[in-house]
Design a protein around this nucleic acid. Structure first.
Length: 278
DNA sequence: CGGCCAACCTGTGCGC
DNA sequence: TGCGCACAGGTTGGCC
């Protein structure tokens, strides 16, 4: 998926188009993504007015005036494109699964090759208690994600630090790319047992996690492979990773002569420097 | 509960 | 252009 920076970028791109807008024509072309779409999907959204967009972890929350909240997750390959009123509005493309048109004439298309994304309904009063939301840990960019919190979580775990940072119950928003990047910056080996990371290292790691996420958001989200951010003026950006995808290439650490390596941890690729990361 | 793995899908790239 | 396999940014459910 899109990780936190990409989801944040998509949410920010959708905000000016959807917030305050009344939905005019809502269509679903498939019965399910990763899970079934709500049975009354089109009916509940059509004619509704969007009041607020927000993000929780990698979920985009779309609140409507009648209290309905649509919870959107982009999975691995979900993309959102916006086609402004008065511009050419494309024919339905392969893997376009959901379209929203506003009364102003803006068109929002959800495209998801692998259909690992999802859209479910909740309501304003109980969305924080929704099963998908309720166990999520503190936002990586929020104040509640701090040294104490991460340190406490790490003490309870023997699994590799990489796996723990991917656990959304520990910290919300990190994914495979930014965990690799943050651990490289912090000089921590991804296979190190969580409970063997020192408190001093956690103090270094937490702000580095924030840095890498903030830099990616500032860059408009990274554009990579099958993920493309095309929501209007935010545009494209080429973000160059220091660790992710750099197997066999020189480590970019100061004065480091080593080459980056790739290992597989719980079926996910991890990229790291065998010299800088201990 | 912690930890691991398969499953959910489609597409792409590489070796033969 | 064919076949088979590995791999891709995520999350869940089942099992030990």
């Amino acid at each position: 998926m899109p990780e936190l920076p990409e989801v944040e970028t998509v949410m920010r791109g959708l905000k000016p188009v959807l917030e305050g807008a009344r939905l005019d024509t809502v269509r679903a072309y498939v019965p399910k993504l990763r899970v079934d779409l709500p049975k009354d999907f089109e009916k509940r959204l059509n004619g509704n007015r969007v009041t607020q967009l927000s993000r929780r972890s990698k979920y985009i929350l779309i609140e409507c005036e009648d209290g309905l909240v649509a919870i959107l997750h982009l999975g691995m390959s979900g993309r959102v494109s916006i086609h402004g009123a008065g511009t050419d509005q494309p024919e339905r493309a392969k893997h376009d699964h959901v379209t929203l048109r506003t009364e102003q004439g803006d068109l929002v298309i959800y495209n998801d090759t692998r259909r690992f994304g999802l859209i479910v309904f909740s309501d304003q009063a109980s969305v924080q208690d929704h099963p998908l939301i309720k166990d999520i840990g503190p936002e990586a960019l929020g104040n509640a994600f701090n040294t104490d919190h991460l340190w406490t979580a790490l003490q309870k775990r023997k699994s590799p630090i990489k796996s723990t940072l991917l656990d959304q119950k520990v910290v919300a928003g990190l994914g495979n790319i930014y965990v690799c990047e943050a651990l490289w910056r912090a000089g921590i080996h991804p296979a190190r047992r969580s409970d063997h990371v020192t408190r001093q290292e956690v103090e270094i790691l937490v702000p580095l996690i924030r840095d890498v996420l903030n830099e990616a958001i500032a860059a408009g989200g990274s554009t990579l492979k099958d993920y493309a951010q095309v929501s209007g003026e935010l545009g494209y950006f080429q973000h160059s990773f220091k660790a992710y995808g750099r197997e066999g290439e020189p480590c970019l650490g100061d004065g480091c002569q080593a080459r980056m390596e790739r290992i597989v941890q719980s079926n996910r690729s991890t990229f790291f420097c065998p010299s800088c990361q201990t």
